[in-house]
Amino acid sequence: MVRREFIKKLIKGFFILTTSVVAIITTWFLYPTGIRLKKYTFFDLMDEEALPIKGVRRVDYLFKADQSGAKLSRDMAGVVYIVNNTKKIFALSPVCTHLGCLVTYNRHKNEFICPCHGGRYDTEGVVLGGPPPEPLTRLPLTVENGRVFVGFKI
């Protein structure tokens, strides 16, 4: 190979190498960090006996990080509504689908009412009025060995 040809190839290779390195670094830099697809993790909520026979029951929970078996990095406390419509038992998240306020159950009206913008849901979680775009989120609920487990996305 003539020297000129060799040097031409060398320079070409150098440019290709540089371009590839820059392309890889750029893509890696632009790729977002902290991507974690959230899956349901089941927590022992309460005894089977505590399930409502009919209607809505508010359950306050507190899951301790040190008793969660490494599922939690810190204590998790909150509210979940267990609904029994005589056909099915399911769990409703109290997070309003409008802007994320916590709805409360109004026993007299038999509705979930959001204190922030007056969003209203019936006991199935379906929107009755106000700004919410979607029904309340249903959380998966299972009963095993007499204990009630509810899945949370953490």
């Binding site: 670094i25 890696w28 830099f29 790729y31 960090t33 902290g34």
Partner: peptide
């Protein structure tokens, strides 16, 4: 701290 190679760029 978080961005890939952010400190480098």
């Amino acid at each position: 701290r978080e961005v890939h190679l952010g400190w480098f760029i």
